[in-house]
Write a protein that binds this DNA or RNA. Structure first.
Lengths: 113, 113
DNA sequence: TACGTATTTAGCAATATGGCTAAATGTAGA
DNA sequence: TCTACATTTAGCCATATTGCTAAATACGTA
């Protein structure tokens, strides 16, 4: 039950759902998410910590940067189902689609992904 | 997004998940859930309202009683998937299993289900 | 070592949540 | 109508959540 509640709580805030949606596009560093969403860095950091605690994301430190990726390959209970629901939820969210466009533009501009 | 968040919020509290789990056994009136869970009636009532607002339950008024049932036949987005997750979540929750036993005993004692 | 950049941790304020009791509402029956 | 019972609504309180800024931490480089 506790694991399930951690997941539903992780998904019970639109900002977090949108962050997770961006990670559907592949691994991102915190700074990318900050740039796209325009939330303060500590805010994003805390959301990502909660997602990681719930088993939804993995962090990879590389020098000063931390890269986060979705736990798409996780075999933990519920995770695959929730990621499938995530895809459906973001695809119809206008705010998310704008953020994703912004991310694509950023990727193109920086040319480093 | 809003509908999705309403669902994840509905599932983000263990008391509500357990109430929804009891409704997997079939339609129940508020007083049954109160008796089994030992929460105050207004507390249960409010949880059920939230579930109904999220499209997870339906209310049927019959005289003084209100019977709630899970929206197992709903074709609304996400609902079937969430009910499937609900089943998994409650099956391994000790507290829920105790409540369900209590419900079964109650049904047998009252002999009216 | 010292500095710059990225991230996390700590702590604050506004709001949301989940429990309760008391009061209001709705229905059935004397 | 009055009473009894089931439920909902309103309002209170303690705690959790989510945004922020400031401070602390971690890493690479001059």
């Amino acid at each position: 039950m506790h694991d399930f509640i951690k997941l539903t709580k992780a998904f019970s805030d639109p900002t977090r759902v949108r962050i997770l949606g961006l990670l559907l596009e592949g691994e991102l560093c915190v700074c990318n998410i900050v740039e796209v969403t325009e939330f303060a860095q500590p805010t994003i950091s805390r959301h990502l910590k909660q997602c990681t605690d719930a088993g939804l994301t993995f962090a990879r430190k590389a020098g000063g940067w931390t890269h986060y990726r979705l736990a798409t390959d996780s075999t933990e209970k519920y995770i695959a189902e929730f990621i499938s629901l995530l895809k459906q939820a973001v695809e119809t969210d206008k705010t998310f689609l704008e953020l994703r466009s912004k991310l694509h533009a950023l990727k193109k501009a920086k040319n480093i992904f």
